[in-house]
């Protein structure tokens, strides 16, 4: 084993994660390797300082309000979904009415009506195409069964 192989054991030794056999192997190595001994000492000092870093505790009233913050987001999320669905329904309704009025209006030229119908057909085709693609990839998604 080279010194590099002992680096992982060094971390385990420092954090008390080694079993007795591993500990003995590493201590044996330390007896013969001054570089690892020096490095272990440096890591030990670093660990001591880092372990001393603690955060200032927050007041209880902040923790009491924490759930409200999460709950408000959940509630707002539902609000956004409802508003979006309602907006889409209203838009479709208003759009349909506007198109109906234009088609039925005898004062407007046939060219405008044909262009409008072509525009609607085009948008509908694009929408169906994108939707079909999404559904196809959802079915064929190789990662859909990956456990999270």
């Amino acid at each position: 084993m080279t010194c590099q192989d002992y680096k992982d054991l060094m971390m385990g030794y420092l954090d008390n994660e080694l079993d007795d056999d591993q500990k003995q192997i590493f201590e044996q190595h330390l007896l013969n390797c001054s570089d690892c001994k020096k490095e272990l000492q440096e890591f030990r000092q670093l660990k001591e300082i880092t372990d001393e870093v603690h955060f200032v505790e927050l007041e209880d009233r902040i923790w009491d309000r924490y759930w409200s913050g999460v709950y408000n987001r959940i509630e707002r999320g539902v609000g956004w979904i409802l508003s979006s669905v309602a907006a889409i329904i209203l838009l479709i309704y208003v759009g349909f009415k506007a198109i109906e009025d234009i088609i039925k209006d005898p004062t407007l030229g046939i060219l405008l009506k044909v262009a409008l119908l072509m525009l609607i057909t085009g948008i509908a085709t694009l929408f169906v195409s994108v939707l079909r693609e999404k559904l196809y990839f959802r079915k064929k998604d190789r990662y859909k069964d990956v456990r999270r």
Binding site: I49, E52, V53, H54, F55, V56, E57
Partner: peptide
């Protein structure tokens, strides 16, 4: 944010 802070921490 550090409790009992000193320069090293």
């Amino acid at each position: 944010l550090i409790a009992e802070k000193n320069e090293n921490k």
